[in-house]
Design a protein around this nucleic acid. Structure first.
Lengths: 218, 218
DNA sequence: GTTTGATTAAAACATATGTTTGAATAAAAG
DNA sequence: CTTTTATTCAAACATATGTTTTAATCAAAC
């Protein structure tokens, strides 16, 4: 009979694989990580990945879903709250607050565990990963959030055409995703380093004024 | 004796390999492209890559250098011109003009040939490629331009602290690189498409006001 | 204690990959 | 024409990869 007990070794193995994969996918990329790398780092047998997850692709999906679903839930809740409380007052949702509702949960989350930091870097790159698998898995998970952001920013900035708004959000996501994988130190090269502090407070204090100004540009 | 003739087959083979590699590296990533993919697309023998370039890594370097060196030269010239003509008039270089000097050559270049469009997408992703080889090759080529940009924007916005300026340039590069590989259609996923036009005029008219406002944010 | 079912382990599989080799071919030089 | 040199080609090499298989191990259920 299939065990439903959470104290068993199975859960631990799955978790160890997820953690190892998360770290390696973030640092070496999906294509650049072999299952032997993953199982080696996790300290489990090679066959464990296919036994517990089915395939390398399914492992990626599991890595993504484990953290992105709860994170998106929080982001959606916070954005919805900003929107609703503005509508109640008969006002537009303030861009600054929307941005904060989008970015703060990510940064809090990033600092909640070392694995989360890897994950954020992975997500930052998923926007533009050349691998179809990565982009597809990521896009499916992020899409509802995108839609909500588009709608609420449209309410916040009704004077912008759809086209302009789409472009500005696109720039925002570009700046954001770039910022997300700076965290992981993968922005630098061997010889060249960008001396950017990346604590949450700094990031927020830099990101929000810049993007807010861009969003309101006339 | 080694041939210096440019009409010989050798040149053609090298070119065909470079073109094929450019397209595939851009669409499938460096790790995601095999030499057999490259030589197959180029219609040349597998061994030709190692004969003419030495290794897959050296091929990447050649692909990067072929276009990025001349492109950077143009960008550096144009930025320098903006800077000098402002200094002559005893003024600060205008942010808007600096941005234009940075982005316009890239977009002109992008529309100059189909291969160039692939290349621009490749460069867009090189900022954050998980592969050390890719980042190192790219960073070495782009670094002088980065430094010039940092210096001239510092002259344009002397009221900003170095830290703030660095972050804002970082956001700009994020937005820019994201925009660069939208061109190639790799931003989308199977089921989800962002309906963004990407002709040069649109991009410029969207990018410059947004980033200018962000740069001047107080 | 035996049985049952889930998990782990080692090995094998089939295929893919970057690179090298050595012969064949073509083109220029003498 | 002969020699020399550069290039192309098919094949082989060594290694890496995702996946599968089969037997061993383990923990709970009866």
């Amino acid at each position: 009979m299939k065990q439903e007990n959470f104290e068993t070794q199975q859960v631990d193995t799955k978790q160890r694989i997820l953690d190892a994969a998360e770290h390696l996918f973030a640092h070496e990329g999906f294509k650049g990580t072999s299952l032997r790398d993953v199982t080696g780092r996790a300290g489990v047998n090679l066959a464990a990945v296919n036994y517990h997850f089915g395939s390398k692709e399914a492992l990626l999906r599991a890595v993504m879903e484990r953290r992105l679903i709860p994170l998106n839930q929080v982001r959606i809740e916070r954005i919805t709250k900003v929107r609703d409380s503005a509508l109640q007052k008969g006002q537009r949702p303030p861009v600054k607050e929307l941005l904060r509702a989008f970015i703060e949960p990510t940064l809090q989350f990033k600092e909640s565990s070392p694995g989360a930091e890897d994950f954020v870097a992975l997500v930052g790159r998923s926007f533009s990963d050349p691998d179809d698998t990565v982009r597809n898995v990521f896009m499916k998970l992020i899409w509802p959030l995108f839609q909500l952001i588009f709608e609420t920013f449209h309410e916040a900035l009704p004077e912008l055409s759809e086209k302009t708004l789409l472009w500005r959000l696109h720039f925002m996501f570009g700046a954001f995703s770039q910022t997300m994988h700076i965290c992981c130190g993968r922005f630098h090269s061997d010889t060249i380093k960008m001396p950017l502090e990346n604590d949450s407070k700094t990031i927020i204090s830099m990101f929000i004024p810049f993007i807010t100004a861009g969003m309101h540009a006339k």
